[in-house]
Design a protein around this nucleic acid. Structure first.
Lengths: 319, 319
DNA sequence: GCAGATCATAAGGCCATCTTATCGATTCTG
DNA sequence: CAGAATCGATAAGATGGCCTTATGATCTGC
């Protein structure tokens, strides 16, 4: 093993010396360090004893640096400045940069549309949004807050349930129109068994078909089809007329309102048993930027939920 | 007052973090720092709490740096390296450079002639000799050892008396010859009253005249004459035939032996009540270079004194 | 599945470090 | 020149930061 042995004097003593040397005044140094003059005197003396050489000459009631002390001082000042700068830059960044991590889906369909509002309300914060799938982000300090789907119960985390993860089939208007033209009547759940599905192999299709008594659903699920890796992509594919996708109504309100997506069976809503959560380490809950984001998000979410969810025509402009 | 407030985390924690981060291994870091793994864990944790952000991600029983930790590490390593280097250079210099401070006189007449011998015996030491008159040199660390004239009793200093500071008139041989030719007989103490003195106003002339019952000495002392500021210069002036100087026999042995200086009254020796001393701070007596020089000097001095003192113009060995 | 390595944590002790108080020396000031 | 103010050294005493020991949990490799 590489044992790069360091031989350093006690750092508390070095620190006291540096401050004392910089001012050539033990009393002032003590004030700067938040301790007493006696403590500085003690530390300086102990450092001198350790070095076996004097750092100050005491004369006429003052302390003046010896040549050795003068030689030592600049390097030490530089070193402490470097340490301070390292932590200061962290603190600076930590106070002014808020990083939110979330899923592609939630980012795309909800957060990205509203994050500008938060930024407007808090111009002193730099906001960064990243998308990823690991909750580890929080433990490793890569993000301050996570917005995630799951069942909750993350160890050591403060959690706020935002909304339940429900889903129902949606498709582009032309897709619906075409199907109904073909059938000559409004769509019914069972009809989807013969329509093109997006991510047909998905277990949630199985659940939805079961929830709605569609036995023939399995055929549709076995048909080849595009398999996409997140709901955001599925939604966009649906809007592009690629078929029916299972989507969470809350997340697509805007597109539904704008007519880009149609919900054929507004009352045929399934639930995953999941929810979306806002999550952050318990111990960071009092940090200002975390607090501000939490409050903003909860208000925003409340507004989003306030619109009658079944009355799905629409995303309302956020309060 | 300029209160350049620094906000630094506890340095012990920073130090532990730096070592732990460098190796990404708390156990190894603990070994390097000479403490236990538990202590490193404790310190790292305390630093993380202070920062409000994790520095390591603990997973699979290992600790891996977070991005924040990685960003911090280089600056901290650099800072500690700088501190280490500062003290190391001092230590290096302190171990290999021996500085002796002494008077012009002793340097000129004794030490300079023999210091080469010490250097030969200790080629690993760099030896530096400076001449000055302040004992403060030692307290300020400018020199390791002082060779000084005085009465002893320096506070906090280890002292070795080397030899008593005695003196007797000396002059160049031509000067003596000229005077005796003029008188037609060997010189006697009283004759100096009408000879040219070097530094005639010096109180030691007064003492020497008194010690030797020369009442008329005062005349000579009031005559104008060159006043030199140290015995080295006075001795050289005497050798140049400028007159009679009061010199310490031990210091001029070589010149006397070579015939460049003559001692007209070898038994008319006065003492100043002073001695020459080797002096150094008590607490430094065990430092190798100090020890080595001390032993060398005492041996050298013993050798110099070993030659029968009365036979040789009479320096007496100190008690 | 056991041995070995690594980190976390609890409990407890102790000494380094700090504070308070006081003194002596020097400098400032009216 | 006296008194006030400033500054550093030092003694005595308190405390809590820091370290150790001991143990547990987790992961890896044989």
């Amino acid at each position: 093993m590489i044992c790069e042995m360091r031989r350093l004097p006690p750092l508390a003593a070095v620190r006291a010396f540096e401050a004392a040397a910089r001012t050539e005044n033990f009393t002032a140094a003590a004030a700067e360090l938040g301790m007493t003059q006696a403590a500085v005197s003690y530390q300086v003396k102990s450092l001198e004893e350790r070095l076996g050489a004097p750092l100050f000459v005491r004369e006429k009631g003052r302390a003046k640096l010896t040549p050795l002390g003068s030689r030592l001082l600049p390097a030490l000042t530089g070193a402490f400045d470097a340490i301070e700068a390292a932590f200061a830059s962290h603190r600076q960044e930590d106070e002014t940069l808020l990083t939110v991590t979330t899923t592609h889906t939630f980012a795309n369909t909800w957060l990205a549309w509203r994050l500008g509002g938060f930024q407007m309300e808090h111009p002193d914060l730099a906001v960064r949004m990243t998308t990823s799938n690991e909750v580890v982000d929080l433990r490793s300090g890569e993000a301050d807050i996570a917005l995630r789907a799951g069942r909750g119960g993350w160890e050591g985390m403060e959690e706020h349930e935002l909304f339940a993860s429900t889903f129902t089939p949606m498709a582009g208007p032309q897709c619906i129109a075409q199907a109904e033209r073909k059938l000559g009547r409004p769509l019914e759940p069972g009809d989807l068994a013969s329509e093109t599905l997006i991510s047909p192999g998905d277990e949630w299709w199985e659940q939805w078909f079961a929830d709605n008594g569609v036995v023939a659903g399995e055929q549709a699920m076995r048909r080849p089809g595009v398999r996409l890796d997140n709901q955001a992509n599925e939604g966009h594919a649906a809007m592009a007329g690629q078929g029916f996708a299972l989507l969470t109504p809350l997340l697509w309100k805007g597109d539904v309102a704008a007519g880009r997506l149609v919900i054929p069976f507004p009352d045929r809503l399934s639930a995953r048993g999941w929810a979306y959560w806002m999550v952050y380490p318990k111990e960071r809950r009092m940090i200002p930027k975390v607090k501000r984001f939490r409050e903003w998000l909860l208000a925003e979410m409340a507004a989003a939920l306030a619109t009658d969810s079944l009355d799905l025509e629409g995303a309302r402009p956020p309060a």
